[in-house]
């Protein structure tokens, strides 16, 4: 066997192996649904693109959807998994920020009440 043929054989083997790898990765349909839900939920509590994590989540979700269309399922799954957690982190950040605003508000009211009580007594 010539060297050239050997190399060609190797290429064929590699190509088959990579095809096999592709076939091994099923379409991450459930994961995409999960990610879409996480993004929707973060949007519902008020996360916007100003939040870097939320912007990342949306970009990665779009990328995952594009990968799905190209049938690069492994890429799609990885992007979708990251996007899900990005969205959940953005949601958690927004909720924490809101609770901090509430704390400031209640503290202002308490100060006012104490002042009023001081004046009333």
């Amino acid at each position: 066997m010539s060297v050239f043929l050997k190399v060609r054989f190797l290429f064929v083997a590699l190509a088959t192996a990579s095809l096999f790898g592709c076939a091994n990765d099923p379409a991450p349909i459930e994961q995409l649904k999960l990610t879409e839900q996480a993004v929707a939920q973060a949007t519902a509590v008020g996360a916007t693109d100003d939040e870097p994590d939320m912007a990342a989540a949306q970009a990665k979700l779009a990328q995952a959807q594009a990968n799905m269309a190209d049938q690069s399922y492994k890429q799609a799954r990885m992007q979708a998994e990251q996007a899900e957690l990005d969205a959940r982190l953005a949601e958690a950040r927004v909720l924490t920020e809101k609770s901090e605003e509430q704390l400031t508000q209640v503290n202002t009211r308490l100060d006012r009440l104490r002042k009023q009580l001081g004046a009333a007594q």
């Binding site: 982190l89 958690a92 950040r93």
Partner: peptide, 11 residues
């Protein structure tokens, strides 16, 4: 996420 959730609960 765990850190944020914990902060939220504390608040």
């Amino acid at each position: 996420i765990a850190t944020e959730h914990s902060q939220l609960l504390l608040n």
